[in-house]
């Protein structure tokens, strides 16, 4: 009994039943299983422990683990829903769900707001935006004089900070992105529609016998 099952089974802490995850997200069961193939690949790229570390996350984004990036760090922190310093499969699926083309617009707006609210104050504040702008310029090796950066910030806050209190709240953000919908482009990943085609090997590893549509 069980003598053929000698291959050690990798444990995936926080891995929920694909059927439950599918019922609570925009993904089908097959798509959740395909995401698991992606998750396995990322979570084993440095240490094969069934969890995605910050280093593995950055490696997946930049294909270079030495690259530190304020934005990738921020996305990692938002994906790390349980604040454990690592992303488990449940975090991964539920976070990517916001990026699904069919996800609710309001969820995308709220996630993008939290993304730019670097210090979790409940507001996007001017010093935070300046910090991100400087990081972007550094990353893209673009040079802008400080007065030009201040001009960009002036214009941005004039447009977005409706009550002119120096910070953008969620109501102001909602209005600003509705007038500038291109800002939400980063919140939709068309790849998520084709995830089963990108990771067809999920079929061989599926634990679900029959999928009822």
């Amino acid at each position: 009994m069980g003598c053929f099952n000698s291959k050690p089974t990798r444990q995936y802490p926080g891995k929920e039943d694909p059927v439950i995850l599918a019922s609570q997200t925009a993904f089908t069961v097959s798509e959740v299983e395909a995401l698991f193939e992606l998750f396995k690949s990322i979570s084993s790229s440095v240490v094969d422990d069934g969890l995605i570390s910050k280093e593995e996350f950055q490696l997946a984004i930049f294909k270079n683990k030495k690259k530190e990036n304020i934005f990738a760090n921020r996305i990692f922190d938002l994906f790390d829903v349980k604040r454990k310093g690592v992303i488990d499969f449940d975090d991964f699926v539920r976070s990517l769900n916001v990026f699904h083309p069919n996800a609710a617009l309001e969820d995308k707006i709220e996630f993008s707001f939290r993304l730019y609210d670097l210090h979790n104050t409940g507001f996007i504040e001017r010093p935070e935006v300046k910090q991100m702008l400087i990081a972007l310029l550094f990353e893209s090796e673009m040079k802008l004089a400080d007065d030009v950066i201040e001009t960009i910030l002036d214009k941005t806050f004039l447009d977005a900070d409706l009550n002119q209190d120096g910070k953008i709240d969620i109501v102001e953000w909602r209005k600003f992105v509705s007038e500038n919908p291109s800002l939400l482009k980063i919140m939709t990943l068309p790849y998520l529609r084709d995830i089963t085609t990108s990771f067809p090997s999920f079929v061989f590893n599926s634990n679900v016998d029959e999928i009822v549509a």
Binding site: A60, F71, V129, T151, T156
Partner: peptide
């Protein structure tokens, strides 16, 4: 594109660190 005509968030959203599509590239 002259960056000064863009709003700060448009510029920031061009960071590679915010481009999650790279997660799907093998």
């Amino acid at each position: 594109v002259a960056p000064v005509t863009m709003n700060a968030f448009e510029l920031i959203s061009k960071s590679q660190g915010l481009n999650l599509s790279s997660l799907f590239e093998k």
